[in-house]
Design a protein around this nucleic acid. Sequence first.
DNA 1: AATGAATGAGCGTTCATTCAT
DNA 2: GATGAATGAACGCTCATTCAT
Lengths: 233, 233, 233, 233
Amino acid sequence: MTPQGGNDTESSGATVTTLAGRPEVLSSDGRGATTLSPKGQRTRQRLLTAARAVFERDGFLDARVVDIATEAGVAHGSFYTYFDSKTEIFRSVVADVMSLVWHTRTSTDGDPDLSPYQRIERANRQFVRVYRENGTMLGLMEQAMTFDDEVRQLRLMVRQRSVERVRLNIEQMQKEGTVRGDLDAFCASSALVSMVSNFVYFWLVMGEGDYDDEAAVHTLTQLWASALGMKID
Amino acid sequence: MTPQGGNDTESSGATVTTLAGRPEVLSSDGRGATTLSPKGQRTRQRLLTAARAVFERDGFLDARVVDIATEAGVAHGSFYTYFDSKTEIFRSVVADVMSLVWHTRTSTDGDPDLSPYQRIERANRQFVRVYRENGTMLGLMEQAMTFDDEVRQLRLMVRQRSVERVRLNIEQMQKEGTVRGDLDAFCASSALVSMVSNFVYFWLVMGEGDYDDEAAVHTLTQLWASALGMKID
Amino acid sequence: MTPQGGNDTESSGATVTTLAGRPEVLSSDGRGATTLSPKGQRTRQRLLTAARAVFERDGFLDARVVDIATEAGVAHGSFYTYFDSKTEIFRSVVADVMSLVWHTRTSTDGDPDLSPYQRIERANRQFVRVYRENGTMLGLMEQAMTFDDEVRQLRLMVRQRSVERVRLNIEQMQKEGTVRGDLDAFCASSALVSMVSNFVYFWLVMGEGDYDDEAAVHTLTQLWASALGMKID
Amino acid sequence: MTPQGGNDTESSGATVTTLAGRPEVLSSDGRGATTLSPKGQRTRQRLLTAARAVFERDGFLDARVVDIATEAGVAHGSFYTYFDSKTEIFRSVVADVMSLVWHTRTSTDGDPDLSPYQRIERANRQFVRVYRENGTMLGLMEQAMTFDDEVRQLRLMVRQRSVERVRLNIEQMQKEGTVRGDLDAFCASSALVSMVSNFVYFWLVMGEGDYDDEAAVHTLTQLWASALGMKID
DNA sequence: AATGAATGAGCGTTCATTCAT
DNA sequence: GATGAATGAACGCTCATTCAT
C-alpha cells in the first residue's frame, strides 16, 4: 500500500478491497452461490435483472413484487423462494451495482505514475463515468436510504469508506506537505466527498446543469485541489 | 440593494427577497389568510403544528393523515377542509420552515462591514444554525423529494435559487478579481452549494461526525474560500 | 266532464286537476307559503332554482348539497333551514316541474272541436314538447325512482294517473264503438302509455333516433290509434 | 337467413346470433375461460353468484364489494383478483343473464311453421317469461344505466339490437304487404319495443297491474299487430 | 421448486348532516 | 335566520406476503 494519492470520491470507498471489513454486504450471493441449484441460480439472476429494470423504471416505492416476477418470467409466489422481501432484493441489486463499481474501480486503481492532482482527477472522472452508467440505481439508493434502515446502513457504510479513504489520503498529503495542514482532515474529507457526490447527483439524476463530462470533472478537481491548498501541476 | 457579497449556501436562496420570483410558494397561507375565519385559522394552525410533529416523528411516508388529525384534536374528515392531501400539508409545513429560514436570514442580511470571507462564514454559520433547528424537516424534504413530484419541484426551486445566488456572487467576485476567474461560475456554485448542504445533512441528520459548530463552519468556510482561490483575511 | 277523447300520454295524468287526489304532492310549497318570511321565501326559491340547475348538470347522485347552496349563494348549512335533505329538495324540484307541466297542459285542455284522433295527436304533441323542455328533469325522475322510495312513489302516482285517464278514455270510446271492444282497457292503456313515454325517453334523453318532432308525433299517434282499431279521419 | 318474421321485443336483440356484431360483450368469460385455473374459475363463479344475490337484494347502489366477497366466502381483496370494480362484476352478471336469455331465445328460434302474428306472440311470450325469471336483474339494468356509463352502453346496445331487428322485420313485412307501408319502420320499431319492454317493466318490476301472463301477452300482441295494420289470423 | 390463488391490514377520501357561534 | 366549521361513518382499492396444491 504505497501512498496512493488517489483522492477518492464517494463511490470509490465501496470498491476498495483492502478496507472491506464486511465484504459480504456488497455481494448479493448470500443465498445464491452455495445453496442453489444451477437452475435456481439462473432464476435468481433473472429476478435480479428484472428487479433492476423495474426499480429503474418505477422507483423503489412504486415497484411491485408482482411486476418484478412477471418481468423475470416467474410466478409471483416464486419470488419469495429467492428473496425475503422487496427490500432484500433491492439491497441485492444495489450491492451488485456496488460490486460493478468495485470492479471498475479496482481495475484501474493505484497507478504510481500519476501525480496527486491527476489521481484526484482520475477518481472524479471514474466517479462521473460510473454515475453516468448507474446513476438511476445510485439515485435510488439515495432515495431508499431515507426510509429503509438497512439501505441506510449500506449507504452510510459506503459513504464512510469513501470519507475514510479520502481522510487517510489527506492526512498522508498533509504529512508530505502537499496540502495545507491546518484543516481537520476528516471534516474536509466529509465535505469534499459531499461536494462531488451531491453535485453529480443533482447533475446526472436531477438534471441540474448540462455539462460536458470533462468540464465538470475539471471544475470539480480544481475546486477539490484548490480547497486543500494543493499546488496544481 | 448594496453589493451583498454574501456567499450563500443552500437554504439562503429561499430567503432572498430580491430574487423571489414566486414568493408565494414559500408561504403556506395561500388558502389561509383570505378565506378562513379566525376559528378556521386556528384549526389550520393546529393541523400544521400537529403535522410537523407527526412528520418529524414518523417521516413522510409513515405519517398518516389520521394521525395528524388526531394529534391536532380534530376529526379525520376535518383535515380535508384545510388540505387536499398529505403532500399538500407537507408542502405547507416545509414552506413554513422556509419562511422561518427566510426571516432568520433577511434579518441579518447585507451587512456592508463584512469582508467577502466573513460573509461566506456568516452564511455558513446561519445555515448550520437553521439546520440544527429545523434539521429534521429539512432532512424530510430531502426524503420526500425522492418520491413526490411536487416536493421535488419545491426542493429544486430552493436549490436553484441558492445556486443562482452563489453563482452571481462568484461572478461578481471574479469581476472584482477577488477570486480566480478560470472557474465555471455555475458549476462551481453548484458544487459548493452541494458541499455545504450535503455535508451538513450527513452531519446533523445522519449523524456523521461530531463537530463543534464553529469548527465545522470554519472548515467549510476555509474550503469554500480556498476552493475559489480567495485571499483569506 | 264531457267525453274528452283526449288520449293522454304519461305526463298528462299529473296535469289533470279533476283527478288530483293529493294535489299537495305536486307542490313544493309545503313549508314555503305559510311559514316563511318573504326573505325566506326568496332564499328558498333561489335554492330550488339552483338545485334544478345542479341536478340537471350533475344528475341526482353526483349533485352535492354544497354545490346547490353555493349556486344559490347561501351558506352550506342554511340549506337545511329550508330542506331536510337532498332527496327532499329533489322531490320539490320534480314537483315544480310537474306543476309546470300541469299548467301547460290544462291551459289547452278539453277542446270539444277536436276529433278523438286529433285529441290523441295533440296530447302526444304536448307530451313531446314538454319533454323537450323538461327532459333532463323528467329523465332524472326516471333515474331517481330506481333508488329513492319517495321519488318512486311520486313517479308511480304520476304514471297511475296517466294510465287511469287513458283507461277511462279507452273505455268511453269502446262504449261509443269508436275503438275495438275486445281489448283489456287497463292493460292497453298501460302499454300505450309505456309506448309513448319510453319512446320519448329513449329519443330525447338517451338520444336514440333523430326525428323531426312532427314526424315522431305522427308515427306515435298512428300507432296508438291503429293499435286501438280506431278509424283514422 | 330465411325471412324470420319474428317480431322481437327488446331482449331478443341480444339473443340473435346472426346479428351479433360483438357477441363477446354478452359473455362474462373474457378473463375467465382462458387465463384462470379451475380453482380460480370456481371462485370467480362463486363471486358472480354472490354478486347476483347481493345486487338483487340491495340494488346496485347499496351493494358493497365487501358484501359480495363475504357472500362468496372469499376475502375482500380476493374480489379484485377477478373483477376491477363493482361495475365490472355487475356487467358480468348482466351479461350472464343476457347469455341466458340468448340461449332461451335461440333454442326456439326461426320456426317456419308460424305465421307472422304467431311469431310476434311467441316473442312476446318469451320476453314475459324471461322477465319473470330475471326481472330483478333486468330491472337493475334499467336502474344502473341511469348513472353508470358502461352499463348504459350495454343497455343501449341491447336496445339497439332489438330495435334494429324489429325494424328489419317491419320492413320485410312492408315489402310483402303484410303490414301498412306508410309507417317509418325505425320509429315504429322503437315505439313498439318501448311499449313491450316498458309495460313489462312496470308490470313485473314495479307491480303495476295483476295480469295473467297469457292475457298480457295476448293484449300486447294484439296491440302490436294492430298498430302495424297486420291482418290477424 | 414452482405455482398463483388467497389473504387482510391499511389508507386516503367524500359528503350529508349537525351544531356552536 | 344565517353561517361555515366540524363531524365521522362509509367504502373502494392496493399489494406485500402466505400457503395449499
